[in-house]
Design a binder for these strands. Structure first.
Lengths: 251, 251
DNA sequence: CGTCTAATTGAAGCATCTCAACATGCGTGG
DNA sequence: CCACGCATGTTGAGATGCTTCAATTAGACG
């Protein structure tokens, strides 16, 4: 059988879904023929705005994005971090009005896929329907972990946990750089994700470096002691529900 | 057409789903014929344990429950609060291993429904499949709001927000007591839900009473100033995605 | 009426925040 | 290619919101 090579966006999506469940050749074909429209979004710009009623889902192809909410004080809470292959506004398929915004953390390439195309695909394929549903549940699981992270852990663990999660997910997507990752977040943004002031994030980063858990050069962070960082950050990757083969193991 | 009157558990489930989407008579019949097994769980006892691989979903029929996670320090984070009609371990349908626990906040009556029965029902009915999916997404939306609540708001807002959410949801289920609700949580548990110490919850409760937002007698809390409490707590019910008619409006 | 849990209050400590200044790096245009 | 300007990172010092510990009171339940 002849299959045309999928676009970068399609490949990312397939890789992402394969990190959580097995796909058949047929599933991959279905995914690879999804129609889309490409857009480029500059750093800090919105991809989807809170309150919108989207008719397409956005797929991150390159770059990084975050979900966020604004609160009364004018501060922003980052709700989750998204890498290539993610569909941050997938909830819009079942919740007409967006209750959060999606913003680019770096210059980002986005593919917009019509709701109708996704709906049609999920109606045809039981297995893809299941995989998408699983993806949605894993999203919820990550939120749960963040609630526990922000609610109960101290500053160093909170920040360490964010690094552990990012490393594990990027590794599962084949987007890690050996023992390093490129986390497209400023210290201020890490603060918005963990409920901390930027100043305190800075101090905690120094702690993590002094403990030889991490070393940083710009936005590239190298994990020097993966087991130690995981333990110190109370990180257990079970909540990511990845397929066994996809999980990192070194140190 | 003859329809046998549904059990209390079935009624609760139907009412819960009707608070977020319209159901057809056929949907209601499907739901009302779901098989189940009743259990009674004492206060503070687990209904489902973290790490379990459930074969049934638990439906809260009477009482109250919470999802929770333990962290390394031995502290517990409450992740969400569940009222009659809720299915707190619905994720187990798509995520084999539980990444959180479910515990009874009060003496609670639970109905266990086999996964197989739910799966069969969702395969037959497109509309119920959509409603369940919507329910799952609303769950995720509530987690997002909790991340923002715990991450960015001060102690008084955090606690006030929990009351606003509980009141709105119980009202939508027809389980409010006029302007009052019975919240089956101790101050220590409110602390576990908001990332605060029990002592500070107590002080904040006094603040809320002194501001004439709430008055409390035991576990029954009366909302004295609904608009004021919402505004002071930065509460906007949009994230609950309720059907318009279901939302409370007074004061 | 005793027992246990939950709520309440006070006092001291500390994790984290805010404010403010300064350093560094980097993209851009001259 | 260098110089400028802005965003980001760094550091210090003082303020504070919340925690912890500890003791007391009030309620619920048999």
């Amino acid at each position: 059988m002849f299959t045309s090579s999928p676009s970068p966006g399609h490949s990312r999506l397939i890789r992402q879904l394969e990190s959580i469940a097995a796909l058949t050749a047929d599933d991959r074909t279905q995914l690879a023929t999804l129609p889309f429209r490409i857009a480029y979004v500059g750093q800090n710009h919105d991809i989807v705005r809170c309150g919108d009623k989207p008719t397409d889902c956005c797929l991150i192809v390159e770059g990084a994005a975050c979900r966020y909410k604004m609160v009364a004080s004018g501060r922003r809470q980052i709700l989750s971090i998204h890498h290539p292959g993610d569909l941050p506004d997938l909830p819009s398929l079942h919740l007409e009005r967006m209750d959060f915004g999606v913003a680019a953390l770096a210059a980002t390439k986005v593919a917009f896929i019509p709701h109708s195309a996704i709906r049609a695909m999920l109606q045809v394929s039981f297995t893809l329907d299941h995989v998408f549903r699983r993806r949605e549940h894993i999203d919820a699981s990550i939120f749960r972990e963040w609630v526990a992270n922000i609610g109960q852990r101290d500053a160093a663990m909170r920040v360490g946990h964010v690094f552990c999660e990012a490393y594990t997910r990027l590794h599962a997507l084949g987007l890690d750089l050996g023992r390093a990752i490129s986390l497209s977040m400023t210290q201020a943004e890490i603060g918005e994700a963990t409920g901390m002031s930027p100043v305190h994030v800075n101090r905690v980063m120094h702690t993590l470096r002094n403990a030889h858990f991490i070393s940083s050069r710009g936005k590239t962070h190298t994990i020097l002691d993966w087991l130690g960082l995981q333990r110190a950050s109370d990180f257990d990757p079970a909540y990511l529900h990845l397929r066994g083969e996809a999980q990192p193991a070194f140190n």
